[in-house]
Design a protein around this nucleic acid. Structure first.
Lengths: 141, 141
DNA sequence: TTAGTCAAGGAGAAAAATTATCCTTTACTT
DNA sequence: AAGTAAAGGATAATTTTTCTCCTTGACTAA
């Protein structure tokens, strides 16, 4: 945090418009909560912002998550043993999940090169890598 | 296929009993369908075997998947863009998913060693690795 | 083999998660 | 400032998953 290139990511209205989505207060709030909470579920988002928008509909969140996924702004995380969670797209990274407390930590680890070889040998055009490792985190031991 | 050690895996009644689960015809059929179809969803299983058991309940399949997961016989696959699928537990492996036709191919690729280092540096006790790569398969190009 | 027991199956309701419909509101364009 | 298309809200409808309760049946041990 602190450099211009990082700060610009917090201008969510602009980010939305750049992706041909209207910058509504609801959308901006969703992104702010996601930025603050990290890996978050639909109804956690709902709980966090329904105070700001008393008439907020759950459907609004679902619809926005779909729209923002299509635009590559957010990403759905399907992790064994947990309900789906969402995060804002950022640098490629993977996840480290504690099976006890459910905490999710980002880890940067480059598997791309090795997997290029694997996929190439299958005539497979590699688009995306989803990797999560599960275990027991430092705190829970 | 062909060796004794592989064939023994097809004795599902014994496999179930070894895991303290009763070997019912429904369970055996579920495992047979899974073995035949590979990566399969709950309702695909239901469609495949409801002919054999006219009174089959969807709840039976759900309950059995949970029980068999707890015993480590089957594994749930949560893959971005797809409904949950299930596979019979076998040698550690990962998945290669075509974003177009949805086909899933097993790939053997050892990421464990490298990830040991990553997790160790976070004081994390590594239990499980879930990796899937997505892209366009050979056929779909 | 047979009776007893506990797990498993079936039916259906209920709950949870997701999507669709339809109308109103509003962000953006010009 | 007005028009338009997109987004939000309310609500119903689907879909997915879980639960309850009762019946059936697989396994155990005599």
């Amino acid at each position: 945090m602190g450099t211009a290139s990082e700060l610009i990511m917090y201008d969510y209205p602009t980010l939305l418009r750049e992706h041909h989505l209207k910058a509504t207060p609801q959308r901006t709030a969703i992104l702010q909560v996601m930025a603050h909470e990290g890996h978050i579920s639909i109804e956690m988002i709902y709980e966090k912002i329904k105070g700001l928008f008393p008439s907020l509909s759950l459907a609004t969140i679902y619809k926005n998550m779909i729209a923002m996924q299509e635009q590559g702004i957010v990403k759905e995380l399907k992790i064994a043993g947990f309900k789906n969670r969402y995060e804002i797209q950022k640098q490629p990274h993977h996840h480290m999940v504690c099976q006890k407390c459910g905490s999710i930590v980002d880890v940067e680890f480059d598997v791309a090169q090795a997997l290029e070889g694997v996929s190439k040998s299958h005539g497979f055009e590699l688009k995306q890598i989803d990797l999560s490792i599960s275990g027991i985190c430092d705190k829970c031991r």
